[in-house]
Design a binder for these strands. Sequence first.
RNA 1: GCGCCCGUAGCUCAGCUGGAUAGAGCGGCGGUCUCCGAAGCCGCAGGUCAGAGGUUCGAAUCCUCUCGGGCGCGCCA
Length: 576
Amino acid sequence: MTDLHSHLRARLLTAVTELGLPRAEAESLVRLDPPKNRDHGDVALGTFQLAKLAGKAPPALAAELAAKITADAIVESASAAGPFVNFRFRRGALAREVLSAIQGDLAPYGKARSNGQIVCIDFSSPNIAKPFHIGHMRSTVIGNSLCRIHRHQGATVHGINHLGDWGMPFAKMMTAYMRWGNEQELHKSPMRYMFDLYKRYGVEVKQNPALDDEAAAHFRALESGADNQERRMWRLLRDESLKAFQGPYTRLGVTFDHVTGESFFEDKMEAAMQRVTASSVLEDSDGAQVVWLKELGIKEPCLLRKSDGTTLYHTRDLAAAFYREQQFHPTRILYVVGAEQKLHFDQLKGVLTKMQEPIAKAVEHVPFGLVLSKTEDGKWEKFASRAGNAVFLDEILDESVAKVRSIIREKNPDLPNADEVAEQIGVSAIVFNDLKNSRIKDVKFDWDAMLNFDGETGPYVQFACARLSSILRKVGTQVPSVDAIDCDVLADAERVLLVMMDFGTAVQRAAEQSEPSHVTAHTIALAGEIHSYLRDHYVVGQEAKVRDARLVLVDAARRLLTTGLSLLGIKAPERM
RNA sequence: GCGCCCGUAGCUCAGCUGGAUAGAGCGGCGGUCUCCGAAGCCGCAGGUCAGAGGUUCGAAUCCUCUCGGGCGCGCCA
């Protein structure tokens, strides 16, 4: 909430109290929202609940409140419109408040001071020994954005890559490698090679189901802790995978505070199991050890130990939860994992709840939809390349970058660092597209739409930044301080200023709901408003008073767009 | 079979937790660069918010059912 809002709210609470309403109850009912149609005013108050409390008709109360809020240095007008009261801030006050906070890098536009939250974000978490493909991208970019958003909000963030480097998929990979692989081939192109082996396993296991038993035996050998052949192979394949993942991570600008894969919890699982046993929620079922969660409305039991004594995904997540609790004391643990794993996380939370572990409250699954691609006949299906196989992320990024490169050649042939810029914009276009809609929605990945950089896209927002930077360069003079300009001149920029004012709400909602798309939407809205504004409002060649005021506005817009994009993990180029 | 998610313009989506005349982008049509970037801007066309009941002063939003689509349901992760 900005100072403008606080001021108005304080006046409203006084007015409401004077009308005889209990302040404590009115407190939560005085909610200032942006009106659906901004022509009505800058902020609006719906009086429905307040009227009920007062025992009056909403329009009557609205009229009374409007009369009580007389104009002052900040509020220009209050007018009743049926059951609503619409407020307008003085344009000068609006401009001064918003622009000085942006210029001063103050919250919510700049990074907030500590808010006391400690947030663990478990994201990306690819399975090693498999290529980094399009399916891994969503968790990676959503999680990365959430890390940035929470840091901006003042939380202490632990971004964790919970690598899938343990368990049966890995054992299958190992089996394939032992049967058909060799190290020379592996080193030539590790990911391709491992992926081919993995695919071969999938084919051959259909003919020879005994392969799965072989894999299970290898996993037992690995989990025995002995320094055996399996252990050495695990180390080799894990190292190669990690090296290969570094490519996509660097391109996406993603870093982690901790890379603690499932294997990290190898020696912590027995303690975790003992803790479960001690809480007496563990039961035997067909030789396996499970926790029943029927009383929590979950029919399927949570398996924590297989009948052959080895552990499962759940066991490792449980050990991880205990570890994080003890190590970080998190207020929230966000698991950025596909929606298809909802049951898994319901069970994880369920087991912790049944054990009466306080950390249970912190566990939050952050689900997201699938990446789909368009088939020949216009239907949507799980992403596959044009050739029909899983698609490596690098291929997609490369195609996007190449497209950007050709656009630059056409539109801006003299751009000095064209390759670098093309990489920035091409990758951003893919990331932005992923963060544009509610995360629960499937991402419909249509090359034609994807490589069209018009409208609500990453390049559109980046273009606004480049355009603003260009204006600042052309003007050449230093951007003045907000205190040194006449803010009343910016009355014509009210639409831009009002959108800027919404930034804090957008980021806050993004953090609370784990929904980066609120930030994405804000950058689009701001870019749109500033583009429209610039059409009729020049900066260069204006008299000093007007030029300086607009200069501050342009600079603030560029800063805020840059901040918004950075919360998405996207860079804003100076030129493009 | 049971559970969860989704259904809003030709297409892809918003809709701020129940409020004012349901908004964008793409695609289509028509304008707009010898003045700060046309990857832009301005305008036009396009809607039974899947359907039916219900709650409410008020429903795209909450509840029930139906119909479509997707995902998940013991020794995989």
